[in-house]
Structures are given as C-alpha cells and as structure tokens.
C-alpha cells in the first residue's frame, strides 16, 4: 500500500492540530472568563499546559496565575521545579494547603483516602472559592480513564463544585459556552484530546522542562504490596524489617510520593521513556493508588469535585 498522498508543509500534523486547539481554548477562556486560573500540578501534563499557555499569549505572559493545590507530600524535586517554572513564565504562583489538613496533620500513611479527600478535593474547592476563580484550567485527558472520555472541554461546575455527568452542556464545533451564573464556575481541559504519547512527543519536540523523576536514576526505594515507593524525605515511615534499597527507577506519573509507585527502568532519555511506554503493558493510572478501590471510583470522585 502506498503512503498517504504527500504530507507537505501545507498540511498540519496531528500534534499541530492539537496544539492549535489547546491554544484556541485557552484564549477563549481568557476572553470570556472574569478570573481564570491554571491548575498546576508540576507533572508532565502541567508542563505541556504551561508551555501552551506561554505560546497562546506570547509576547504577553499568560494573563492568569498558576495554582498548586499542595498536599505537602509531593516529591522534593516537584517543589523545586514548581518555583522555577512559574518564575520562568513570569506568572504568579498561588500555593494552597488546606488549613484543616495542615492542622490535623493528614498524611498518606495514617489516613488513607482521607488524605486525597482533604488535601486535594477539599483543598481545591477551598482555593477556588477563596480566590473567586470562575474558570480553572486542568490538564486532564480523555484517554486517561473511561469517565473522562465523556467530559466536556468546558466542564460546568455548580456552586459546590459538583459535576453532573448527565447534565453536561452539548459542545459543538469549536464553540464553547463559557456563560455561568454568579458562584458557578467552569473547569476547562485544553488537552482533552491528547494521548499520553502525544504529551511525551510534544515535550520531546519542544524541549519542555519536566521533573527529573520521570527519567531513570538510582534512587532509595522500598517495595511494599507490589508497589515500589521512593524514600523521598525523612518523613517516610518504614515498616518492620524495611530498609531503603537503591534501585534504578523512574515515575510514569507524579503525585504524593508515598502513594506513587515507581517502575524499574533504565530509560534516561525522552525517546527511551517513550519507547518504554509504548512497549509496556500497564496503563498510566495503574501507578496511582486512587483508582483501585472500585471500578467507577473516578466518576464518583469527579462528582464530588476532584479534578
């Protein structure tokens, strides 16, 4: 079979179309929302989002702040990149930590799913309400999980930040309805149509800076219940008989370090990471503990306001 009739410079590649779509979406939000914000989790998807935002508004800096809903349990390397990335982009960085979770010392070792509920779900709602943000960019993708495959690009939230999957606004062409009543808000997902491969390839093509933890290196680890955990700081709690073991590992997703499983890997460059990802046999969210509880857990969390 012959190749598709000539890919010339006069035809856009799929990445160019995805890039154009994401930029279009970001500009619509800035044009129509009163007080937008970009959720920034320091992960690879956030890195792409930030890059797209810089492109969308160049030569102006992106006309909104970055918001990091912190749990205090992220990897140290994430905190380091967070500060640098915001500074490089010329954007204000807002860090929110749920005061209730701070006070109660909520942590992933003792509190299980309460850790996510309080730091992330509640923390996010608090931050959005406190700053009066009426539009929040998120880096969720439709290929990540079944419930996300149906979410709109402009996802409307009630005053309590709830999502009603049965009552979503129809979204046609590239026309986004950003209208809302006072107190209501929209979550906006400009990279909805990107896949994990697209993200990696885009990072590769554009030399986008990402947290070094995505690249393989020898790191102190503990293996527990089939997950390899990294001993990232002195707060790590060893169980009886556990000793940190140095392994060559990297992370496919980044979250709170005691909840994020690493994979043993030698992939130290982007092409190697992509190669490993394509040949691997487990999907991206497998490394995160959050999804394992029940089949429809993500949908449930989203209804409650989790990003």
């Amino acid at each position: 079979m012959t190749a598709e009739a000539g890919l010339t410079p006069e035809r856009l590649t799929h990445l160019e179309r995805l890039e154009a779509e994401a930029i279009h979406i970001m500009r619509e939000v800035v044009a129509e929302a009163e007080n937008p914000v970009m959720m920034y989790s320091v992960g690879k998807d956030s890195a792409v989002m930030l890059h797209l935002a810089k492109m969308a508004f160049y030569p102006s800096p992106p006309p909104f702040p970055l918001l990091h809903v912190d749990t205090t349990w992220k990897f140290q390397a994430m905190y380091a990149l967070r500060e640098k990335a915001a500074k490089d982009a010329g954007m204000e960085l807002i860090v929110h930590r749920n005061p209730e979770a701070v006070e109660k010392g909520i942590n992933p070792f003792d509190h299980g799913s309460l850790h996510t509920d309080l730091w992330k779900t509640e923390g996010l709602k608090q931050a959005l309400t406190a700053h009066g943000f009426d539009a929040a960019f998120g880096g969720a993708r439709r290929d990540e999980e079944k419930a996300r495959a149906k979410e709109r690009v402009f996802s409307f939230r009630t005053e309590n930040h709830g999502w009603d999957p049965k009552n979503q606004r129809p979204e046609l062409w590239s026309l986004y309805n950003a209208r809302k009543n006072k107190g209501e808000s929209v979550r906006v997902f400009p990279i909805s149509n990107w896949t994990e491969l697209d993200i990696w390839q885009y990072i590769h093509l554009n030399n986008i800076e990402i947290v070094p933890l995505y690249f393989s290196a020898p790191r102190p680890t503990v293996e527990r219940e089939g997950m390899i955990l990294m001993v990232d700081d002195e707060r790590f709690r060893f169980e009886d008989g556990e000793e940190p073991v140095e392994r060559s590992i990297r992370f496919r997703t980044l979250g709170c370090y005691p909840l994020t499983g690493a994979v043993e890997s030698e992939a130290a460059t982007l092409p190697q990471i992509i190669q490993e990802m394509l040949l691997t046999t487990t999907s991206e969210r497998e490394g995160r503990a959050i999804d394992h509880d029940q089949a429809a857990s993500m949908e449930k969390k989203k209804r409650e306001g989790y990003f």
Binding site: A3, E4, H14, R142, D143, K146, A147, A149, K150, P165, K166, Q168, S192, N193, T195, L197, D198, A295, A296, E299, K300
Partner: peptide, 28 residues
Amino acid sequence: DGLAAEREQGITIDVAYRFFATEKRKFI
C-alpha cells in the same frame, strides 16, 4: 462504555471520545 449509569443500563448515553493511531494517522 464509560459512565457507571450507562454500564448499568447497558447503553451509551452521551458522547465519548476514543483515541487510536496507526502508522499513518491518529484517530479520534
């Protein structure tokens, strides 16, 4: 089949977007 309600009913009730790629194209 994505949403929990749909799985129970055995029908698709909304628009869902899927992704795949071949050597030549990416598809949505």
